[in-house]
Amino acid sequence: MGRNLLERAQAGDQDAFRDLTEPHRRELQLHCYRILGSLTDAEDLLQETLIAAWRGLPRFEGRASLRGWLYRIATNRCLNALRDAGRRVPAEPVPPFTPPEPSRRGEVTWLQPYPDDLLEQLPEPAPGPEARYETREAVELAFVVALQRMPPRQAATLVLRDVLGYPSTEVATMLGTTETAVKGALQRARAALDGRRTAGQPALSAPGSSDERQLVRRFAEAFTAADVDRVVALLTDDAWLSMPPAPHEYHGIPAIADFLRTSMAYPGNRRTVLVPARANTQPAFGVYHAESDQVPAGSGGLIVLTLTGGRIRAVTRFHTNHLMPRFGLPEKVG
C-alpha cells in the first residue's frame, strides 16, 4: 500500500480510495457471505463496509494492515446485521402441489448459492499460518450452513481464525473482546463444526474430474427424464434434499424418493431442462420448465449437488430465480 495513495484517499480522493480497496472487494464479499449465508445480504453489507471505510479512513492510523482493518469493519457490520431483529427473512414459497411430510423443517431458509465465477476473481493472498481450511472447503454449502447454525460471534471467530488465519490477538481486536474470549469461542465453534461431520466420510470428488462429470451427467439424464429410481440410485444412504427458502427437508432415500415422485408428477407432461453451472465450488444446474416442446422453458431455480465418494450426498434446490443471471444462466431456454 503506497503511503501517497493512502494520504490521498484520507484527504478525500475517491479514485485513490477505490484503488486502495478494490483488491479486497471480492474477498470481503465472500467473508460477508460466509457469515450471513446470503449472496444478496453479502452484497449489501459489502457496500455498507466500503461506505463505513470511506468515512472512517481519515482516522486510520495504520497500526494494523488496511486489509485487517477492512475485515474488522466488515465483520462487525455483519454481526450488527445478524443482531437486527428486522433482518430480512425470505417468505416461504407455496408449492403448486401438496408435498409429503418433510423429515424436518430447516431453520436456515435464507441460504443462497455463491457463483464460482466470483471465486475465480478472488486474489490469492496466503492465508495466515493458523488457517485450517482451504478456500474450497470453506465455501461449500455444508460449511456455510454449519456457520449459520452457530452463534454469530462464534462463526465470525471461526472464519477469522481458521479460514483467514488471523492470530487470536488480532481477532480479539477486530471483535472488541479479549484473547481468552476468542479462544473459548473458537473451541466451541470447532466442536460444533466437528460434531456435524460424518465420521469416516469418503473424500469429496475432485472438481471437474471425469468421475464428477460422469456422476453429474447421470443425474441430469435421470432428473430430466423424471426417473426417480435412477436419481435415488445415485444418492448416498444418508442423503438429504433441501429447498431454500422453503424449510422442507427430506432425509434418506425413501423420503427423497417420495418427494421427487410427488413433485415430478406435477404437471404430468411438463418438460424439464437442466443447464450446467457451478456454485460454492460444487456442480450445479439452472432448472427450466415448459408445459410443452413448443414453448421456451422458463427458469425454475438452481440445483447444487454435494458429491462424496462417487455419489451424491445432498441435493439443494434453490428457489431463487432472481439470482440466475449471477450464474450466467438465461431467463429462458428453447
Rank of each mutant, 00 (worst) to 15 (best):
13 D>F: 01
14 Q>Y: 08
22 E>W: 04
25 R>T: 06
32 C>P: 02
40 T>D: 09
46 L>A: 04
50 L>E: 02
54 W>S: 04
64 A>P: 01
73 I>L: 15
73 I>W: 03
75 T>W: 02
76 N>T: 11
77 R>P: 00
80 N>Y: 10
82 L>E: 11
83 R>K: 12
84 D>Q: 10
85 A>F: 07
88 R>M: 03
94 V>G: 05
100 P>T: 03
107 E>M: 07
110 W>Y: 12
116 D>V: 11
117 D>C: 03
117 D>R: 13
128 G>V: 00
130 E>F: 03
139 V>K: 02
147 L>D: 06
149 R>Y: 05
152 P>D: 05
158 L>I: 07
159 V>T: 01
164 L>H: 02
171 V>F: 04
171 V>P: 00
176 G>Q: 13
180 T>G: 13
185 A>K: 08
189 A>I: 01
198 T>D: 11
208 G>W: 07
210 S>C: 07
214 Q>L: 10
222 A>Y: 00
223 F>A: 07
227 D>S: 08
227 D>I: 06
229 D>F: 08
231 V>L: 10
237 D>Y: 13
238 D>L: 13
244 P>Y: 11
254 P>C: 13
258 D>P: 00
260 L>K: 02
268 G>E: 14
268 G>F: 08
272 T>I: 15
277 A>M: 03
289 H>F: 15
290 A>H: 04
296 P>D: 11
297 A>M: 10
299 S>E: 03
300 G>A: 15
304 V>M: 04
309 G>M: 13
309 G>Q: 12
309 G>V: 11
316 T>H: 09
331 E>W: 06
